[in-house]
Amino acid sequence: MIEIKIATKDDIDSLMSIRLEMLKVVNNLSEDYEYSDEIITESRDYFLNGDHLTVLAMDGDTAIGCASMSFLRIMPTFYHPTGKRAHLMNVYTRSEYRRQGIARKMVELLIEKTWEKGATEISLDATELGRPLYKSIGFTDSTECMVLTKM
């Protein structure tokens, strides 16, 4: 039986393990790729101290999926009077567990908790593999956003 649960600080080892696995998969990195100390340290710090909710999909004691909602607050606007927004990220299920509704359950739990926290908008960056799921939940494509990335 797969359990979907909101992660706590006590789950840090499972969180780190499944996130680093997910990063290898989505970035097409080799199994033996070694992460920088910075990404490990900063990821661990974010899980322990960041403004987020993360869920884990567990098969017994083994993490087989994860999803995170990061929260941010911007100046309130007419359409977002609280200024509270969220960004869905790191939605991942191990390949052998896919097509069982696990990612949907993780995302739906995060959405429910995000609305409860008063956010008025959820954004995400979708892979082609994830797009059908997000569209079926109600996410729509947006042309409103432009991005500047520090190089």
Rank of each mutant, 00 (worst) to 15 (best):
E42S: 00
I39A: 01
E42M: 00
S30D: 01
S30G: 10
D32R: 05
R19I: 07
N28K: 08
V26Q: 03
E38G: 14
V26I: 09
I39C: 02
N49H: 06
L20W: 03
D37Y: 15
L48T: 11
G50P: 08
H52N: 13
E31Y: 04
I40W: 03
D45S: 10
Y33C: 13
I18E: 09
S30R: 15
R19H: 10
I39L: 02
E21L: 12
S43V: 01
I18F: 02
L53W: 04
V26T: 07
S17W: 12
H52C: 12
M22W: 10
N27E: 05
N28W: 04
E34N: 13
E38W: 15
G50M: 07
E21R: 15
S17L: 09
K24E: 00
Y46L: 07
E38L: 14
N49S: 12
S30Q: 09
I39Q: 00
V25F: 07
D37M: 14
T41K: 08
L29Q: 15
Y33W: 13
N27Y: 05
R44P: 09
K24V: 01
D37G: 15
I40C: 07
L23H: 09
L29Y: 07
L20N: 08
E38P: 15
N49F: 07
S30A: 14
D45C: 05
M22G: 09
K24Y: 03
N28M: 01
N28C: 04
D51W: 03
S36K: 08
K24P: 01
Y33S: 15
E34T: 14
S17K: 12
N28I: 02
K24I: 01
I40P: 11
S36E: 11
L23G: 11
R19T: 03
N49C: 09
H52A: 08
M22L: 11
Y35S: 04
R44I: 02
L23K: 09
Y33V: 13
D45H: 06
E21F: 15
E34C: 03
S30W: 00
E42N: 00
G50Y: 10
D32N: 06
I18K: 01
E38H: 15
I40V: 14
I40H: 11
V26E: 02
S36I: 12
T41D: 08
E34K: 15
R44L: 02
